[in-house]
């Protein structure tokens, strides 16, 4: 029985990275093509295929697939407009790439035997670092030192002493929350994908072991199976939602770089 659990129900096995092709190291770093790389490639390929098709068809009257591509375009554009204004549209290609890269990775992860690239902290962490780097570099380039006004929101009319007291409390909080941004941004996506896939695997495992154990297990198995189905639906929601959250928070942070004074 232990052997059986070992083979099937280990919920961590799905996150294991395996080398598929050994590649010569670059600057001493092992950059071998792994299963993670493969599924990332699949996601990027599907993304390019879908939007490439929508772009190359380019008819005035769209068919369904072209319509889907154009709805994606309008969706991201509206998201940026509503959070960062018209000026935010200069980051449209970046936010678009980010949103659909994560969405495709999350959704591909929902297919059995596929690898969820966004369930690795290194991937989500790099994406979050990229976002924050762009916010900082662009914010400083556009606003100069005024960018740091981000940490000291204007308080309006108030006696000087009151202002000093409030700033003494507020500025550290703002700085900490700014530093926390890349952490929360990366951890949220990573933890959601990881936990969701572990849960799916666990309940699927319960169903299978319930049947093989027999006895009371036969009663547990259908419940676990039903739970697995419900969780599957939930995970599809989470896959879309987390991509959306990542993209919209990116827009909010970019808005700070565009307009640092609250």
């Amino acid at each position: 029985m232990t052997l059986f659990f070992h083979g099937v129900a280990d919920p961590m096995k799905q996150f294991e990275v395996k080398k598929l092709f050994e590649l010569p190291p670059i600057f001493g770093f092992d950059v071998s093509f792994t299963n993670a790389s493969l599924w990332m490639l699949v996601g990027v390929g599907l993304c390019i295929a879908l939007f490439g098709y929508a772009a190359s068809r380019g008819k005035i009257v769209p068919n369904r697939l072209q319509s889907i591509g154009e709805i994606g375009y309008g969706f991201v554009a509206d998201m940026i407009r509503s959070t960062a204004g018209e000026e935010g549209l200069r980051f449209f290609p970046f936010v678009f790439t980010l949103f659909f890269f994560i969405l495709f990775a999350n959704l591909i992860g929902m297919s059995p035997y596929a690898f969820t690239t966004t369930s690795h902290i290194i991937v989500t962490g790099m994406l979050a670092l990229l976002v924050i780097s762009i916010v900082i570099v662009f914010g400083l380039w556009k606003n100069g030192l005024k960018f740091f006004g981000l940490f000291a929101p204007s308080l309006g009319d108030m006696p000087l002493l009151g202002k000093l007291v409030i700033y003494a409390i507020l500025i550290p909080i703002e700085i900490i929350s700014f530093i926390a941004r890349p952490l929360t941004l990366s951890l949220r996506l990573f933890a959601n994908m990881l936990a969701g896939h572990i849960l799916l695997k666990l309940f699927a495992g319960f169903a299978v072991t319930g049947v093989t154990v027999g006895g009371i297990g036969l009663l547990v198995a259908p419940l676990a199976f039903g739970m697995g189905i419900a969780l599957n639906a939930l995970e599809f929601l989470v896959a879309g939602l987390q991509a959306y959250v990542f993209a919209i928070l990116t827009c909010v942070y970019l808005n700070d770089a565009l307009h640092p004074s609250h």
Partner: peptide, 15 residues
């Protein structure tokens, strides 16, 4: 697995 460091360079490179 997500905290194993051996695959980080490969993950970053392909990302």
């Amino acid at each position: 697995p997500p905290f194993e460091t051996w695959h980080f360079p490969s993950q970053v490179f392909w990302l």
